[in-house]
Design a protein around this nucleic acid. Structure first.
Lengths: 245, 245
DNA sequence: CGTCGACTTGAGAGTGCTCAATTTTCGTGG
DNA sequence: CCACGAAAATTGAGCACTCTCAAGTCGACG
């Protein structure tokens, strides 16, 4: 279910786009003509040097983050398989970086070819726009977590979000997902220290809401977690799934 | 300089777009043909009922926020004159609201006409895209503030950002700007309590970095504030301005 | 001139942090 | 395949930034 060899990045992308917008498979087919290259990243390697491209995550997890002078790190978002990363910055200055959380493969699409593709298919343009709006929604979720949720709520909210997104591309099962999340990364995503992440995870574990280790996250009581975090499921598909409980 | 009667919302919009992207005035002229209506908002009034439109803020300040069940409020972003608000939600559920922080005028553009306009001018499409990417950058800034800055740094960072954005549309002077920011609103934007906002503002005031009351914010030492908050100026224009110090 | 919202200030409490030591896990090389 | 070293997780103790509750002031507006 989750073995993304080399070629099914297109399927991942299609699954995600069709889950959040109305995209006929025929329209998506234009993407087969796309000129691209594959770029493999080692853990912690960043992709600053490949600017002027759009990247699709084919495998692995990445993070967009910013470092402060004194070493503090703020993670803006986590990129999952099937996500699109726009590597062309708005301003010349590198206001943030993208790095792999573990070995990852990116499919790189030069801006030129991306634009050519867009000219060929208005439906794809709409789908890409929806994708960007979803990114925006994810950032808003991140603001909500950091601004007004407690550590306990933040973790529940974030794990539900990741799970939802992985469900969209078929990389989660009903109880959880394989994860590449270090407690350190969680800390930088959720604006906490790893020590406090550890203690709060322990509490969630004691209460039998989750099971976590570095390679797997299991959500033992999704409805309860969603209630704790006041979590809104992402996308129509996700909504339907939640409705089944 | 800042009297936005009824008709120069187009000028505000043009100033902002041309500051963040390359938009020839001739191309912008297409916007004059636009079918639109003006919607006035009283303080705290929200605009949920005008969905399916794009709105341009002609005057006043608005906020996009979400309320939690227990009354906590998280403000995602502040809309200033010249900003575009997309009122068409990604999902049917109203995951957030937009409300006026004080009397405000919105220019409402039905989705249909907005799309017609886009077909007429590719340059405008590009400019609108840049505008959305700037919104995204602002959200990332918000994540940085909430995730890894202290209360002291957050306030400095946020005030600089607002100032920068007002400068883009010519609604700030070199030392500060007219503001509609209640300490309560600041609290909900910066993820703090109004009590702590009050104390931290007092500290910034004592250190002669800012002067604030409800109607005006003055930045007494921009370079120092920028250093404290590790603030990156927005847009090329803003960068040039900072370089003058 | 009274009222209501916003601002201010005080005191005490708590969530989350710092520092630090220890254990466990895991990637890598022999 | 096992051993080793580094990274990650865990735990303890004390601290502090920020919160809560509460009282009191200021100021705009009817």
């Amino acid at each position: 279910m989750s073995h993304t060899g080399q070629a099914d990045w297109q399927q991942l992308l299609y699954r995600r786009l069709s889950a959040i917008t109305d995209l006929p498979e025929a329209e998506f087919a234009h993407i087969h003509e796309l000129v691209h290259s594959v770029h493999s990243l080692a853990r912690d390697e960043d992709v600053r040097e490949v600017r002027g491209t759009v990247a699709v995550v084919a495998a692995g997890w990445c993070a967009r983050y910013r470092l402060l002078a004194d070493g503090r790190r703020s993670v803006f978002n986590i990129w999952l398989p099937g996500d699109m990363i726009n590597l062309t910055p708005l301003t010349p200055s590198p206001e943030c970086q993208n790095a792999a959380l573990r070995r990852a493969d990116l499919v790189l699409i030069p801006d030129v070819h991306y634009r050519q593709l867009c000219e060929r298919s208005p439906a794809l343009v709409a789908a890409f726009a929806a994708s960007e709006r979803m990114d925006s929604l994810l950032l808003a979720n991140q603001v909500l977590r950091l601004g007004r949720l407690t550590a306990y709520e933040r973790i529940a909210h974030f794990l539900l979000e990741i799970w939802d997104r992985l469900c969209l591309v078929g990389m989660a099962n009903e109880g959880g997902f394989e994860s590449a999340l270090t407690q350190n990364v969680l800390a930088d995503v959720l604006g906490l220290t790893s020590v406090h992440i550890n203690r709060t995870l322990a509490r969630l574990r004691e209460e039998e809401l989750i099971e976590v280790d570095r390679r797997e996250v299991r959500l033992l009581d999704v409805p309860r977690l969603a209630e704790i975090a006041e979590y809104d499921p992402i996308g129509a598909e996700a909504k339907k799934r939640i409705a089944l409980y």
